[in-house]
């Protein structure tokens, strides 16, 4: 369950968090990540993104079907999808 006192997640805050998360996996700085580019183009292959899904679950404190990351292959698409997902928990 989400902590009711925590800041609500928005598409923007999710995008920012995802960008930092991806940057840290790739060991590069966040400002070099284009959020409209497919994660696989950055070398985050489909199995690897499953581990990113785990971090997302921890961050958002919800359980996610990791295939959400397969169906939404860019940070932009994923932020939108996550915001929708979270709306269901609200």
């Amino acid at each position: 369950m989400s902590d009711p006192h925590a800041e609500p997640h928005t598409v923007d805050s999710l995008r920012e968090w995802l960008t930092n998360c991806v940057a840290s996996h790739l060991e590069r700085s966040a400002d070099t990540i284009d959020t409209s580019v497919r994660l696989s183009d950055y070398g985050l292959d489909s199995l690897y993104v499953l581990s990113v899904a785990g971090e997302l679950e921890d961050h958002l404190d919800i359980s996610l079907d990791p295939t959400l990351l397969w169906d939404n292959p860019t940070i932009d698409a994923l932020s939108e999808a996550l915001a929708k997902e979270l709306a269901q928990y609200a």
């Binding site: 199995l47 690897y48 499953l50 581990s51 785990g54 971090e55 921890d58």
Partner: peptide, 12 residues
Amino acid sequence: SALIEQFPRIAR
């Protein structure tokens, strides 16, 4: 390799 991908979850 499939197991290692899940190390973070298992360890947590």
